[in-house]
Design a protein around this nucleic acid. Sequence first.
DNA 1: TTGCGAAATGACAACGTTGTCATTTCGTTA
DNA 2: TAACGAAATGACAACGTTGTCATTTCGCAA
Lengths: 336, 336
Amino acid sequence: MATMDKKNVSMNDVAIAAGVSLKTVSRVINEPDSVRESTRDRVHAAMEALGFRANFAARSLKLGRYGCIGVVLFHLSGGNVDMIDGIADAAAERGFALTMIKKRAGEKMTLAEAARRMSQLPVDGMIFNLRQMVDDFDTFEAPKDLKTVIITPMEHPACSTVSDDQEGGARMACEYFLNRGHKNVYFVSGKKEALSSQCRMKGWRAALEARGIEPPEPLQGDWNADSGYAAGLVLADKPDCTAVLAANDCMANGVMMALRDKGLSVPDDVSVIGFDDELYKTIPNSILTSVKFRHRELGVRALNEVVAGLEAPSSRSRTLVSGVLVERSSVKDLRA
Amino acid sequence: MATMDKKNVSMNDVAIAAGVSLKTVSRVINEPDSVRESTRDRVHAAMEALGFRANFAARSLKLGRYGCIGVVLFHLSGGNVDMIDGIADAAAERGFALTMIKKRAGEKMTLAEAARRMSQLPVDGMIFNLRQMVDDFDTFEAPKDLKTVIITPMEHPACSTVSDDQEGGARMACEYFLNRGHKNVYFVSGKKEALSSQCRMKGWRAALEARGIEPPEPLQGDWNADSGYAAGLVLADKPDCTAVLAANDCMANGVMMALRDKGLSVPDDVSVIGFDDELYKTIPNSILTSVKFRHRELGVRALNEVVAGLEAPSSRSRTLVSGVLVERSSVKDLRA
DNA sequence: TTGCGAAATGACAACGTTGTCATTTCGTTA
DNA sequence: TAACGAAATGACAACGTTGTCATTTCGCAA
């Protein structure tokens, strides 16, 4: 039978009920050891009886901080889930909650606009998750009192950034091919506007050029299996194609299916590597070798970076989280 | 060259700079039409020059509300992404931000614990996303002044709930089989503790029993393709098995691969239906018929339900969002 | 010019906490 | 028992905003 009038219960109400001063109630909450046990019990009892819950706004106003980190999602996709998971867990561990806003489909949001909206909300710092280019990326200036971390493969002139090492992952995959005797590597890209696809392509190019190999024309995909299948049909007709790097696993699977439908074997005729290592969830006994990024770790790093920078918002750092090549049997060693 | 001392700029600072009263600055922000244009311009200029940003805590304290809805994620998985997307978009549309906390892996969080933590944060209402059972589900009492909506297939005695119609979707799939002359339907379940798997199984049972059919022993899977493959190997040996309902698309794909490896054809020998309609992303020319739920819509409904209930937190409702059967060619019509 | 009602602006309190500093109470020792 | 230092508690201001109500300024008619 909790007493519950329409008005919210304040510390003052608790203080009166417990026969102590307002400040003592505050102390019971924030520094319980400085209050005599008998008093503390009385206050706790009163809080219980009245259903007291501390007022966040008043507390934050006085303290000058919120204990919340803002997260701006410019795009919410499958890969982001693990990253958000990492952010949320790291936040919980450090006693922070998350305040989230999202770019709506169709809406065109700049970094400045996102920062403006976020800075109206209860946040001590913020994380932008940016998978595509925005107009004001290079000119953006973060609020000087709000630590800002951008999750993006591009370097930013003023803000800290955190990213998967997409380029490095692509290079790693190419070198894996080349070290096994392949003379060239074809590339199937994801959606044009996706930064991850762009970076993977860049890494692929760089790896080939580093060995003096002229990169062939990349094939344009859209992340889905059907586009990979279409690319596979084209590649099946190229006699010099022994190695294919696809910008994600779904397209890699499409490529493999097309090659098989054309009578070619993976890996005996053509070797394939994908990205994200998620095919095993859908395909039993999947053989696809794949570059896997640690998205969760990415989120954790981003959050830690924000928290570390709370006191010095204008500090700047760049963090790269390396990928891992998950080896299966879709790559043939031609040196054998 | 924005002036920027270490201390934050308050309305009072702006007021002094603009040569007006504190209250006028407040009016410029909240009811600009009540301020003469010349005054308004002067204030805006001062705000710009000083880099003023309204203080969230003070505003919320005075207003008695936050403009934020809390979201508690008990489990963050692929299916949730679209739901969060829906919540976030609907929130943005109605001028709300989201405050998020997440159960950490391994941690055992009850509804009461989640509610306690949330009610310390800046929220006007909250949404719990519950994919597995929790100990205090039936006994949980939501804070009386905080509208609480639970996304879960189970009915709750006191709180509003929103859910996909998992059971209805499973029934729909079964009837689709039965109406096409199949005499029985086998079922491959997902992880035991997942409510969605439980509900899908329940709907499958109900549909068969409604036609006087004894449901065969369900096969236990774990959502991944390999477990579906294992189930498929077992089912391939059952002569009476003409129809298989798998609790998700990945396992359905595993089942199909196993059947083919055993020399059986889908759909000529065995028909298959999955859930979630996501196979087409990974498999080119996918033939799998699948029950698709509108997760985005689910999120939208949940958020709208919270907002609608802000004034009457103790109101209670139950919303079911129906699924859709996406027809492809994995089901044979035996009546032909 | 004066007077009037409406529009624009201002003074001050209040929201519910925490920090500062003063006061009271306690346990100990002389 | 008195006196003392430490521990416990309290009074009051302050955080930055908005609501209430009072005051000033304005535009217009007499």
